[in-house]
Design a protein around this nucleic acid. Structure first.
Lengths: 214, 214
DNA sequence: ACCTGAACACCGTTCAAGT
DNA sequence: ACCTGAACACCGTTCAAGT
């Protein structure tokens, strides 16, 4: 798939000594490892093996393991953003519904891509200053919440105040539920229970961020 | 310190071939490693070195690395429970104040013991069925929130509903904020900003879980 | 009953050497 | 310019052997 025909290859169609696009191949290998074998199976050596190169080859393209993890995490944030954005289309003209749909789809992403989610929030990629692309992708995700909350405020459906700070509260709630679910802290977590908890969390959230009533 | 005088030791005061209480020594070593060098420095071999035994010795006392981590995590939950319980004493007769103090002290524990907190919620100890002591300790922590919420309900200060489910919402909010802070997702997180965010999260929470107003 | 020493199969990372 | 092979210092885990 995606065979870039102009690239030099050996007679039998296998890759040449120079890989050509090893960076992309390593990223694809890393993504596959995370999806199929979990976050702890994502090692630099395993990615190199899957890409068919020596263990030292990745260091031409990634400074260290953290850099590869950061690239995978960045992909994850872009996918999460896309998932959340898609979840809002059914709620045009309903700021509160959009806001809540963002939260529900956040939890949905976490439980359906647990390993990827862990890489996105793992300690190894915590140094955002060293990975500006990752920081930008994460800020774009948060931006969706800030934007939706601002819309709620404009419609008089959310209390006044710094939207970034209120959005962080919303983020904390759905992120916390996701983290507790992935860490097995809430029992077996059957799909219907996940849905119920997500509804409960986003409901109480919505109420707490709502306008003050006299 | 804590020299158990009746225990057989060699002439120079060093430990004998048989350690005597290696399990406890390994746990102390593990706790020290986590506190001083971080969660990723907590290896079985390092704990054995710190306890002065061979790398294979821990396997007499812990089935594997996860078992040691689970023991450290259990200690962490007990310390967290104690911290939270202490935070409520200033709020006798004020169910809402108690509930909020529990949440604030949860975040406070996370930011002041980040490595320990990570071990408590790390993937390696996610298998609660294999570590009943850890599960009990974690449930005791959650129990504080459930109890405080039930008191709020009795006083008409929280909406009716399954207290366990509403307590999970509260847990999710403070846990999410803690996780985002520890993962560097909210910037540098100066102490006053941490305090501000924790106030904001527990405030919106309190409002959202409060009684329905007509 | 408890611990050691050596081994095995892994890591991340570096570096001279190959093409 | 990009990749390999071998090496180094680590892991977790096992197992025969020591005390």
């Amino acid at each position: 798939m995606r065979k870039r025909p102009g690239r030099p290859r050996s007679a039998r169609g296998r890759k040449s000594y120079h890989h050509g696009d090893l960076r992309r191949a390593l990223l694809e290998a890393a993504r596959e490892l995370v999806q199929t074998a979990g976050a702890e199976a994502l090692t630099l050596r395993a990615a190199a093996r899957l890409a068919g190169v020596s263990q030292a080859a990745p260091y031409r393209h990634f400074a260290d393991k953290r850099a590869l993890l950061a690239a995978v995490a960045e992909e994850g944030f872009r996918a999460l953003t896309e998932t959340m954005r898609r979840a809002t289309v059914a709620h045009a003209g309903d700021p509160l519904g959009r806001f809540r749909a963002l939260g529900l789809s956040y939890v949905g992403f976490a439980v359906s891509h647990p390993a990827h989610f862990r890489v996105m929030f793992g300690r190894e990629t915590a140094d955002k200053a060293a990975h500006p692309g990752l920081r930008d992708a994460a800020e774009e995700t948060l931006g969706l919440l800030v934007g939706a909350l601002t819309d709620c405020q404009r419609a008089g459906l959310a209390r006044p105040g710094d939207p970034a700070e209120l959005a962080v509260s919303a983020w904390a709630a759905v992120h916390g539920l996701s983290a507790l679910l992935l860490d097995g802290q809430l029992g077996t977590a059957a799909p219907e229970r996940v849905e119920q908890l997500a509804q409960c969390v986003t409901a109480s959230l919505f109420l707490g961020l709502g306008p003050e009533r006299a």
